[in-house]
């Protein structure tokens, strides 16, 4: 792997109160990659993202982004360093319009004009959002909300994009569309760390994958290899012999 390492998570232990949700997770994301985390509910996928984005700091282990240790950096400063996220459940600002939500994505940026360009770029990626731009985000459909959440994350001009369950609750046709867009964003140069329940779709777009089980990394391999892996096929791709 000759490409440059963007994110390096080393042996993190993260707690929810007294419960140890992550028991020493290590992973890395390289320039240009889509890396996916798959695993069942409660395996620690979302907690891993919350450790990286600063909302739930690990107690042990370290997170290094572009050479800087961000293990204890507060969430609002991590965005400035270049990591942005479309969180689980989308977490839009329901009483703000679509445009306002997108503007919030660029909150920590000061370059007004370029922000405007990026908004146009988001609208060309998601023409649906352009149609709905003055509508309150809380009134959007599930698919539109997901587009808005991804768009909002892009407005930060991330050097690493975290996506948490972008396909959750969406109709199959929309899932295909969202994954096509994820691929497109990646092709334009942004590395992506993708958390998904839909292991098939995720492994299909990803270059590498990690399988999490109860707070540890059970398997780590190339996405193609994981797709062929017997264990993965049975447990996560719903295959019965």
């Amino acid at each position: 792997m000759a490409s440059e390492r963007v994110l390096y998570v080393e042996g993190i232990h993260t707690f929810y109160g007294a419960i140890e949700a992550l028991k020493g997770i290590s992973l890395e994301v390289h320039q240009g990659e889509i890396v996916t985390l798959i695993g069942s509910n409660g395996a620690g996928k979302t907690t891993t993202l919350r450790s990286i984005n600063g909302l739930n700091h690990p107690r042990r282990g370290s997170i290094v982004f572009e050479g800087n240790d961000i293990t204890r950096t507060p969430a609002h400063e991590i965005v400035k360093s270049g990591i942005s996220q479309s969180p689980e459940g989308r977490k839009l600002f329901p009483r703000m319009t679509v445009s306002e939500n997108l503007e919030m994505g660029a909150f920590q940026r000061t370059d007004r004009l370029e922000t405007k360009d990026d908004m146009d770029r988001v609208f060309s990626l998601f023409p649906r959002l352009a149609e709905r731009k003055s509508q309150k985000a809380g009134t959007l459909s599930g698919g539109e909300q997901q587009m808005c959440a991804i768009g909002r994350a892009l407005m930060a001009r991330p050097k690493l994009l975290l996506l948490d369950e972008p396909s959750m609750g969406l109709a199959p046709i929309l899932v295909e569309r969202i994954f096509a867009i994820i691929k497109e964003i990646n092709d334009q140069g942004t590395p992506i760390l993708l958390v998904e329940q839909n292991a098939m779709m995720a492994l299909d777009v990803a270059s590498r994958g990690y399988v999490l089980e109860t707070g540890t990394v059970a398997l780590a391999d190339d996405a193609k290899a994981l797709l062929r892996n017997e264990q993965v096929r049975k447990t996560y791709l719903g295959e019965t012999d």
């Binding site: 507060p74 969430a75 969180p87 994505g105």
Partner: peptide, 22 residues
């Protein structure tokens, strides 16, 4: 800007932090 930060924080604190709002 401060007002937008207030409204965002009021609507979703985690999301506000992810936008870079203290």
């Amino acid at each position: 800007r401060a007002g937008k930060a207030m409204r965002a924080t009021a609507q979703d604190k985690d999301a506000a932090a992810m936008m870079g709002i203290d």
